[in-house]
Design a protein around this nucleic acid. Structure first.
Lengths: 235, 235
DNA sequence: TCGGGAATGCAAACTTGTTATCAATCTGGC
DNA sequence: GCCAGATTGATAACAAGTTTGCATTCCCGA
């Protein structure tokens, strides 16, 4: 599993032409981190772009009340750190290694030089930021409008979108606690929501694993419950 | 009042050097819209960038259940339409004129030409998208973690940030129904939250108007209730 | 100045999610 | 095979928000 909560957003590297990607990686310093190591901490001031070379990282923040909110989980090819470059902000989130990971670290001056030299980099970053923004707006709207089981179903479906063939059952390795921290709700609620979906045969609950036995049916079920008016083609 | 729910995000025009801004506006076609007119509709396919010249627009979406969610309200200098340019998406939101407005419409090919000709445009758009992304992430986290009165207080404070002097009372023309649609809650809840804040003397509830009599005190009150660990300087 | 529409206040019954605690079940390693 | 720890299920008391319906208050224009 590469990443399961990236809101279906594309990675940076595939968006880059070969030459641009090579230049970017040539400017990078690969750094190893062990499981649980902190790649960046909220509040850090060192700006730069980071690209996941191998492994997975968790982006999130602990609350002062002991809770923890996972914002995103990123796999190979995904990048983070744009805020420190373009929004002139300190690190806004903790970034923690899940298992052993290698991160390509590119310092701010080097990113700037590449940006000036090759407009394709800026273009890709713009595409990425825009798609993330869009995904996040949708997520925020879902958060406000959809009941938990529907949100949950939507994301489970998104997580398995790349599983082929699309009509085959798909399963993800996921612990209910993790789901809870992603949605910012308690495990109890996640459990209830899952059991409601399971009662309709839409998911099968395993031990540390969820299975979607019939994704087309789940998609139909979801479409019936979407709150947004369907987008009418035309223009 | 220019805009009151832009999540404290800067406008596009002030981010541009004079030359870039002039080139952008030279490529634009100004279009008038009357109060309530639809500037874009969700699902429209015509790509392009729009810049508010005068007046205010509401970005949002109606739900199939009759509800309406306001995503943002933008004033002069702010832009929208990046999704159609960089994420290759149809319009994701309705854009409606609040009062009479003038919008500078710039077609996709013209934006592309400007992007290639002047890296400053891409830079500004990247800054903008990044800041919006950051603001939205924070908003989404608040949505999940903060009780409604705290969220409300935070946004009222943000809405009045540009009112000078910062220690003076500030008031915004706002109807509770609008607040409800912004936060995706019912008017009843907004009313309750407001009355709770009013009980502490943090806001004064008027008819179609809210007043913050002591913003420094409100800021202190908020800081005590922030969930995120304070950002520790350093790095 | 007074009437009507807009905006706000209030109450009751309901739904959903929370915390806390404990029981049941699964899995991997010895 | 079996046990310890991890994971899930279940329950109860509680908190927050929703919907519905109606009362009240405020402003503005005739």
């Amino acid at each position: 599993m590469t990443d399961f909560f990236d809101l279906d957003t594309p990675a940076l590297l595939p968006l880059l032409p070969d030459a641009t990607r090579d230049a970017l990686l040539a400017a990078a310093v690969p750094v190893h981190y062990r499981d649980g190591a902190l790649v960046h901490a909220r509040g850090d001031h060192k700006p730069g772009l980071s690209v996941v070379r191998s492994g997975t990282v968790r982006i999130g923040n602990p609350g002062s009340d002991g809770s923890y909110t996972t914002t995103s989980i990123l796999g190979p090819g995904h990048c983070f750190g744009e805020f420190t470059l373009f929004a002139d902000l300190p690190r806004t989130h903790d970034v923690m290694a899940i298992g052993d990971v290698v991160i390509d670290q590119i310092s701010a001056p080097r990113v700037m030089a590449l940006y000036d030299a090759d407009p394709k980099l800026g273009w890709a970053l713009l595409c990425l930021a825009t798609r993330r923004l869009h995904a996040l707006i949708e997520f925020a709207e879902d958060l406000r409008r959809l009941p938990l089981p529907v949100q949950l179903a939507k994301h489970l479906l998104a997580m398995t979108r790349q599983h082929e063939p699309a009509t085959a059952p798909a399963s993800v390795a996921l612990v209910q606690d993790d789901l809870a921290s992603m949605f910012g709700v308690s495990r109890v609620s996640i459990g209830k929501a899952l059991r409601r979906l399971a009662a309709d045969g839409l998911v099968e609950i395993g031990y540390g694993r969820l299975t979607l036995p019939d994704r087309p049916r789940l998609a139909t079920w979801l479409a019936e419950r979407a709150v947004l008016m369907p987008v009418t083609a035309g223009g």
